[in-house]
Design a protein around this nucleic acid. Structure first.
Lengths: 211, 211
DNA sequence: GTCTATATAGAGATAGAC
DNA sequence: GTCTATCTCTATATAGAC
């Protein structure tokens, strides 16, 4: 994804004292670089939340991240790459949560229920961001990769769903995901705030579908 | 919406023959004007389907509609207005279909089922267009009006749903709509074409939720 | 390796001829 | 009332100083 992530940490430090001052400096630079990257990605996230996708300009991202536009382009080749990185960050977080649940699953009903909760928490942690990313995903030019992540999510979900409903196929899993997103988004958009109420409806919808 | 829709047709024609050539000319111009408007809106629709929202530029719309950019701006004050008109066209078509079903409703189950079918037909008639419009709706600046149309849809749906489930509220109706859109979109996006299969899942999801 | 300044391009929208 | 030509603005991306 970015070319500057070389593994300086694997350098074998010579015993000579002259090497010692270098090590931290190099490490520090790596850490700084990562921090800058993260800052840029998070700035993009906040702009999406505050100004929507039309407000997301590279100049604004650079400004909000506290770096110059020139620096931004040292870390990302173009605007798409920033959005892609952000999307990956969010999706991977959700995916790993799903995998945890899937791995720990015993009782089918409880597992499905836990998945629904996870989806809802994810969506409600930053609702505007989740929504904007969904919109942006379609126009990203990384369809292949995005599709692959969705695929992985669907497969993981399917594994759990099959505990409850052995004849289920991938369509069913995708539907379940779609239902979660749709209800959560629609609730968020129409200004609902009572998570408990929404959660109850979500469970009803998903379990009703899988019954 | 547009200022040129004055009701010339209500002019009482004087008996004098001089009036006769005017009437058709005015009528003809009106008809032409409407045709041009329609052509512009439909051109926008086709561009959305073929090039996505990023490809939707006013110049391209004018070109595809077979008029010059100058003419386009005689009919619409800006790009948003074109999208808004298109959105209205689609939404009102769906709304009036929903009203038909609602008005003719006898058996609750059958009515809900008919609504689900209508939603699915609408979504699958032009899936890409429906999806793009959903994305665009959020950035339209006509939130108030769009929200009102959604509200009308939800209320109409609620009336039918209450036949099945008297304690239902607007949230339930909105959820039902969201479920329909979500499953239809997700199916369309992942390339499913068998409408019968999707329809079966949709019914299951909605009826499962309302049970 | 970070900044400022700017090249470049493409969009929306308008002016004015016909 | 429709066209062509064009203005203006703003966004992405780069060049070059430091």
């Amino acid at each position: 994804m970015n070319a500057s992530n070389r593994s300086y940490s694997q350098l074998a430090y010579p015993i000579a004292m002259t090497a010692i001052p270098h090590a931290p400096r190099k490490q520090a630079r790596q850490a700084r670089a990562r921090a800058t990257q993260t800052a840029i990605i998070e700035a993009a996230a906040r702009i999406l939340e505050g100004n929507g996708r039309d407000g997301l300009t590279t100049n604004r991202v650079a400004d909000r991240a506290g770096v110059s536009i020139g620096s931004l382009y040292q870390y990302f080749p173009n605007k798409e790459a920033i959005v892609a990185a952000l999307l990956r960050r969010e999706r991977e977080a959700l995916l790993s949560r799903i995998r945890e649940i899937s791995a720990a699953a015993n009782d089918p009903m409880a597992a499905v229920s836990a998945l629904v909760d996870a989806a809802m928490e994810h969506q409600f942690a930053r609702p505007k961001l989740a929504l904007e990313l969904e919109y942006l995903e379609a126009s990203l030019g990384i369809e292949a990769e995005a599709a692959e992540l969705s695929q992985q999510v669907a497969e993981e979900i399917l594994a759990v769903v099959r505990m409850l409903k052995p004849e289920a196929d991938l369509c069913i899993a995708r539907d379940a995901v779609a239902i979660c997103k749709a209800i959560a988004n629609s609730a968020a958009l129409s200004g609902e705030a009572e998570q408990a109420k929404i959660s109850a409806r979500l469970h009803k919808a998903v379990l009703g579908y899988l019954r």
